[in-house]
Deep mutational scan, measured.
Amino acid sequence: MQRVNMIMAESPGLITICLLGYLLSAECTVFLDHENANKILNRPKRYNSGKLEEFVQGNLERECMEEKCSFEEAREVFENTERTTEFWKQYVDGDQCESNPCLNGGSCKDDINSYECWCPFGFEGKNCELDVTCNIKNGRCEQFCKNSADNKVVCSCTEGYRLAENQKSCEPAVPFPCGRVSVSQTSKLTRAETVFPDVDYVNSTEAETILDNITQSTQSFNDFTRVVGGEDAKPGQFPWQVVLNGKVDAFCGGSIVNEKWIVTAAHCVETGVKITVVAGEHNIEETEHTEQKRNVIRIIPHHNYNAAINKYNHDIALLELDEPLVLNSYVTPICIADKEYTNIFLKFGSGYVSGWGRVFHKGRSALVLQYLRVPLVDRATCLRSTKFTIYNNMFCAGFHEGGRDSCQGDSGGPHVTEVEGTSFLTGIISWGEECAMKGKYGIYTKVSRYVNWIKEKTKLT
């Protein structure tokens, strides 16, 4: 034993070699072989497995989906700052455009905790909710729209109204504003409101030439003092309507412009014939205590009207009353817009006519005020429907199939267009061939041609 100890002390290297040989010859039971080890760690190889990531292109799944990435790591994937920024906006807080917040056709661009709407022409605001041009839906104005110097929408209202708090709607500024039905039992019968379409306001006024200088022999019209197929109006439903009495009662109609003036057809009036105007009328054979009678003290036909040349060209006249009318729910003026808007309103496509005229061709006159909704007829169809001249200051309205029309005794009465609950004068009943005849239409004086003249002559002093 002493000898062994001496050998170990003198030859430590020998001992180490012996131990190493023993270990190498022993069977290893701690580690699995290569094949079995792979069965336990069965993990798919990654895209760049075996390579240094710093030297390969980034992978979106590896960089940002398996674990949260930084902007720089995302930049490695896209290799483009702009594309990385677009991805980053949604990656950080989701897609803010998912709810489609942009209105009126706006395009949404996502941002971090926010979004941006790219608005089409005519709109602005956070969600493109603000109209900035009158060309689109009248700028959301209830009545009139004008573009300011910086191309912003400025709404306005006709006389007797003021802008509401929203700067879009119009509200009454006087007790009985024009064009409004205020009798409670008839307010439910107000005709369907007309909503502004998209309009090209630059070209809204037709490029028409008034044929002022045409000389033409007097034409022989049949029954051209021209509501057939209409309905009984309720008291106060058309408070701007008046009836004219002269040699015979209810020979023509008219509309209240203001307390002192009536507008009617020029062919209705004769110099030297006494005319009485009755406002607030409903049943011409009954006294309903809503009527107001006034005498006409002055007749002003349009300066281009000449019955000797043509009885229905420039067929418009103004009547001055001896005493002002007292405005109330049964006696209310009709609204008159400017030339541009009167023309736009007419193009809405349908209007209402009213009167006490004959209820059928050569038949009896109506006792109760009649009204009828009539569609506008395109000019080409209008011209083809008659052998008589249709001037540019006239328009056609009615039904091709016949059966409904204005008729004798309705002449001078109103053709009105309702705009968001307020009625505007767009025409004056003038003439036609018979009444409600198939293929024939009622012919009306186009008020847009005469609004400046009306307003100039009827100013209240």
Rank of each mutant, 00 (worst) to 15 (best):
P44I: 11
A366S: 05
K455P: 00
K260T: 02
A366D: 13
T81S: 08
T271D: 05
R294H: 02
V273M: 13
Y161N: 01
D212R: 12
L425P: 00
S187W: 08
L372V: 12
R298G: 05
N100W: 06
T426C: 00
K438F: 09
C97G: 00
E116R: 02
L60K: 12
R46M: 11
N313E: 08
R43L: 08
V273T: 13
A366G: 11
S156W: 11
Q216M: 12
Y391W: 10
A317Q: 01
C141A: 00
C252Y: 02
G432K: 10
S329F: 04
Y341L: 06
A436Y: 07
G13W: 05
M437Y: 13
S49E: 15
P375H: 14
K45T: 06
E285K: 10
C157N: 00
G402E: 14
Y341D: 06
L376T: 08
M6W: 14
H314G: 04
V248A: 07
E10S: 14
G421I: 02
F31P: 15
V77S: 11
H400F: 10
E73V: 08
L367R: 15
D232T: 11
A266T: 01
I256H: 00
E323H: 09
K440P: 07
A149T: 07
G229F: 14
W356T: 05
C102D: 00
D33Q: 06
Y330E: 04
S354H: 05
V296I: 06
I40S: 15
G402N: 10
L244C: 02
Q370D: 03
K440R: 10
K89V: 08
P177E: 01
G236Y: 05
E320H: 02
N258S: 06
L372S: 14
E433T: 08
N138A: 06
C69K: 04
L20R: 02
Q2K: 07
T332Q: 03
T276M: 07
V92S: 14
T264F: 02
C97L: 01
I214T: 15
A9N: 11
E193H: 13
I443C: 03
K234E: 14
Y441P: 11
Q241L: 12
S365H: 14
E418Q: 12
G272N: 11
Y115S: 02
H303M: 08
K39F: 07
E116V: 03
K362G: 11
G412M: 12
K260G: 03
T386V: 07
N222G: 09
E281Q: 11
G349V: 02
G413T: 07
V326P: 02
Q219G: 14
G13H: 06
E285H: 13
V202P: 14
Y47Q: 11
K311H: 05
K234P: 06
A250N: 12
Q241C: 05
P175G: 07
E27A: 07
L14C: 08
T186V: 13
N5P: 10
A279N: 01
A397V: 06
A397G: 07
P101S: 03
F144N: 00
E124K: 02
Y371Q: 12
L20M: 12
K137H: 14
F71N: 15
A250V: 10
S448N: 04
C407F: 10
C155R: 01
E27Q: 14
P333H: 02
G402L: 12
V199S: 07
Q185Y: 14
P333Y: 01
N245T: 10
R162P: 01
N258V: 01
P301W: 07
C407L: 07
F251T: 07
C102S: 00
E72T: 07
K126D: 09
D378K: 08
G21V: 15
K387H: 15
Y371P: 06
K260F: 08
V419F: 13
K137T: 06
N59S: 09
E142Y: 04
D200R: 11
F388D: 06
C18F: 15
K188H: 07
R75D: 15
Q408E: 14
F78T: 03
Y91N: 15
N147V: 10
S217A: 09
D95P: 08
G363F: 07
V248F: 09
G355M: 04
F224T: 14
R449G: 13
Y91C: 04
D111L: 10
D212I: 09
V278E: 03
N310L: 03
V199W: 12
K311G: 05
C69D: 05
T458V: 05
C407H: 04
N100T: 10
N258M: 02
S70G: 15
E116I: 02
F224C: 05
C141T: 00
V195W: 13
V326N: 08
S156V: 05
A9D: 05
S350K: 12
Q143N: 02
P12V: 13
G432R: 14
R83I: 09
G253E: 04
N100G: 04
S423P: 02
I210L: 13
S385V: 12
C117K: 00
G179F: 01
G21Y: 13
I429A: 12
S182M: 13
C117L: 00
A265H: 02
